[in-house]
Design a protein around this nucleic acid. Structure first.
Lengths: 140, 140
DNA sequence: ATAAACCCCGTACCTAAGAACGGGGTCAAG
DNA sequence: CTTGACCCCGTTCTTAGGTACGGGGTTTAT
């Protein structure tokens, strides 16, 4: 058999692929974030490429400051077929706004860092620190 | 004495102002994130308005997924006057890039949610979930 | 001037998110 | 066919980031 792309990953390969520990993968499964994969007769988990993507998503979202509970919510939205739509729609809108605020905050911090950076570059003179200035804004 | 704006806050007022617990404020002080304020003769901490801003900044950054250690680094940059500039400049650039990636990730997630939202709105039909689609992208 | 509300400090406790362990089965390479 | 690497499960340990407690002084509103 040649040409058969790697269809199934063991938990160890999956974990290494995404850069997490095996324990973490099993933990996510227990938490319901990662679907339970099919098993071999031996009991070994067999993951598909989709699992790699799901796992990557979870990591990304977690690095962005979402708790695992929030990640679970995001993933749950994916499952909402259409029946709960009227209500789910609000939830989605709320999350969109929330993310918009996060982006704005990050931009503000980045802007301050950029100013620091260029200031560092040009003159050696240093007036007010832009990070401090950033702190000045209360509700921009 | 009228007209004197509240110059000094007790720790409790500071905490309430920002929406955290008193213990949290003291914890941040211990961690070196928040400067030790002057004290009254009684030992009570006296905070200025700056403390409110610093504390808000810490909370924002933390909600954005920065660890307290990272927040401390960000705040430390503020202090770097100019001597360590050559080296610090790299650090700043790195952080700027890091934040850029976070923003990109958030945008991608938001985009997916927006599509979910509009899809919910228009037809009841539901093809592939955009969040699932988002997961498909490996290195966009 | 006294009670309620607040502050001090130190220590103990808690939750989230894993990481490590231990005893045992499994798979592939030599 | 055995040996090293890998997997199973359940349980325990750790770390970050707070929270709560307890005993005692301080401020403030009545």
């Amino acid at each position: 058999m040649m040409g058969t792309i790697m269809r199934h990953l063991t938990i160890g390969k999956l974990a290494r692929e995404v850069g997490v520990g095996v324990e973490t993968v099993r933990y996510y499964e227990r938490r319901g974030l990662l679907a339970e994969p099919p098993r071999k007769a031996s009991g070994y988990r067999q993951y598909s490429a989709d699992a790699v993507r799901s796992l990557r998503f979870i990591r990304r979202a977690k690095e962005l400051g979402f708790s695992l509970a929030e990640v679970a919510e995001l993933l749950a939205l994916r499952e909402a077929p259409e029946p709960a739509c009227p209500d789910v729609k609000r939830q989605i809108a709320t999350k969109i706004d929330d993310i918009g605020e996060r982006i704005a905050d990050l931009r503000r911090i980045r802007g301050a860092l950029e100013e620091l950076h260029s200031r560092c570059e040009s003159t050696g003179s240093l007036g007010v620190c832009p990070i401090l200035a950033l702190l000045q804004e209360d509700t921009p």
